[in-house]
Design a protein around this nucleic acid. Structure first.
Lengths: 190, 190, 190, 190
DNA sequence: GATGAATGAGTCTTCATTCAT
DNA sequence: GATGAATGAAGACTCATTCAT
């Protein structure tokens, strides 16, 4: 008996992300995914019951790993500014290294596959992050404004910076990164 | 494009934006656009040679009007902070009032239709805005960092705030809006 | 504007019946129907929303015309035996002339498409026929046994005779037909 | 066919008959047969080289046992009417007890798998039965009409009666059965 | 110009069959 | 022999586009 092949699963995921990066969800076909992953179309259906299930599963995977990257290596004893900068960098790096996943996620939000369930997952995943921001707010490190404002400001900053670096409009130098984080931090710090 | 009937043209554009808001570019079909616009499929081809041409035309329209909204009512003699706040509000309001167009634009960036040409249009349209930001920078009103950083920070702030208001995570009060702009301004001001 | 084409509808129906006669419902594909009918596959979906709807519509058509043939030309004033023989002949002729429809119907009864609704149609259509049989029974022309028994005996006789004629096991002579009807009539007459 | 495991072979046959009873040959898939039989798809190919071979083998099995049931317990010394009634009952009981096989057979006749070979088998199997009918005819017990007419009349009667009992349109009482056979016998007896 | 039926290439999905384990 | 993952051709259905009216 031949067991399901983890390697194949990874190939399918990677193929999908790569294709979405190239032309978005619009043109994404099962045939193209299979070709890119080096398997037969039928094989996709061994691993996923339908295109929808494939999309949802990849969303969950991408969302989970992306979010997980955020707090990686966080040192609770370090000063807040350093911690936030570290996370800002974490996220930036992850976005750049896994740009395909990022594009996938952003396209997914306005797609026929996005559902309430998808929204819930998102909320669950950033729980720790929210707690941290609120604790910083309580200690008057961050401005006393609604938490969502702080979080989205932070996320937006990473997003925009990543886009600039990717498009080449901004070169990746320590100075530029520091500046970019500075804009963010000066905005949210108390 | 033969502007035989302006009303029909508008109906087509509106129908397309509305549909994209609902389920993204993925499921968008000419048949659905025609139905939503109240015309026959064949009629679409009277106004646009192909789906691609329709998409590109709508992109240009949405991009142009969206950008135009930014500097509306700008008073060159007012203090910079007020001017920027005014523009920030302009843009926010436009995003909320024409959310469908916004979704269309964001989906368009990673679609099979996005091209170099599209990118150029974008650059051309924000020329005035870039000039204004650079002039503010020269007068040491804004930080001395690459212009793109300032612009994207500003744009990102509007974007994230609009999303929060739309999702209901943040209620639209003067105070909240002031706070949101505050995060942005504190980040970019010198 | 091009209106839906009745001729095309007929071609689709005929093509379907012809194919089912050849190889049964098993191998029946939309592509084959389209090819046989001389239209594009897509055209089938202009006339029928799905394969299921096509099947159901053809069932209703075949069932209706088949049943209608039974009492055609019936003369209520003629003696019962003549009337029944006439109908027996009617039905036999119809079965032979429209054999493809007959095969379709018989296959349809044990297919994924047969439903309660289908069963109801059947009952509705033979109402007059049931009445006639019961009236003959009341006048002691036919045996005093459950009506369904008389009806099925009659139907079975037509069915089996038609099969014999078609297969060539029995040649179509007046004498043979008279004999065949005789077996039926001797069985059901009082 | 390698009769490695008789139990498995029976499970496959039974599974197939059961599935065909439910939705006919149309939806019948090897995967479904395997699932219903409790084996892996690959296993089916250990016992049958292809789907076609499976179908043909099951046809032969069903046809053989069905026909065999007819003359079971026939007493050549009993009066003809009793003998025929006994066989009529035999067949009726078999049809009801093995309805799935009956459906299979009837669907098979108009399927892509029915062949000349299949037809020959049929003829060979009912040889004895034909002889009996002809001997009865010679002794002027049955009408002097073509044998096929007598045989089909008999078979049709069983068929129709079984359908009525199965559908519940006729309840299974001794009286009803006697009536049903009566219709048949009165038709064919000399 | 406006319509919507017609087209057939292309989409998702299934399925008989094979093959590595 | 038994398994079920893997295959890719084929099936139902869709859709951008054309064309007769």
């Amino acid at each position: 008996m031949k067991p399901k092949d983890d390697e194949k699963l990874r190939a399918i995921a990677e193929a999908t992300f790569a294709l979405v990066e190239q032309t978005g969800l619009s043109g994404l076909t099962m045939a193209a995914i299979a070709r890119e992953a080096g398997v037969a179309t039928g094989t996709l259906y061994v691993y996923f019951k339908s295109k929808e299930e494939l999309m949802v599963a990849l969303y969950e995977q991408a969302k989970t790993t992306t979010t997980a990257s955020l707090m990686q290596g966080d040192d609770p004893k370090a000063p807040f500014r350093s911690r936030f900068q570290r996370m800002w960098m974490n996220w930036l790096d992850y976005r750049l290294a896994h740009y395909a996943q990022v594009v996938f996620l952003e396209q997914y939000y306005n797609s026929p596959w996005f559902s309430e369930e998808s929204r819930n997952l998102s909320a669950r995943l950033i729980k720790d992050w929210v707690d941290l921001v609120e604790s910083a707010k309580a200690q008057q490190i961050l401005k006393d404004v609604p938490t969502v404002l702080l979080i989205n400001s932070f996320a937006g900053s990473v997003r925009e910076t990543a886009n600039l670096l990717r498009s080449g409009a901004l070169s990746r130098t320590d100075k530029n990164l520091a500046m970019a984080f500075g804009l963010c931090w000066d905005g949210i710090k108390a």
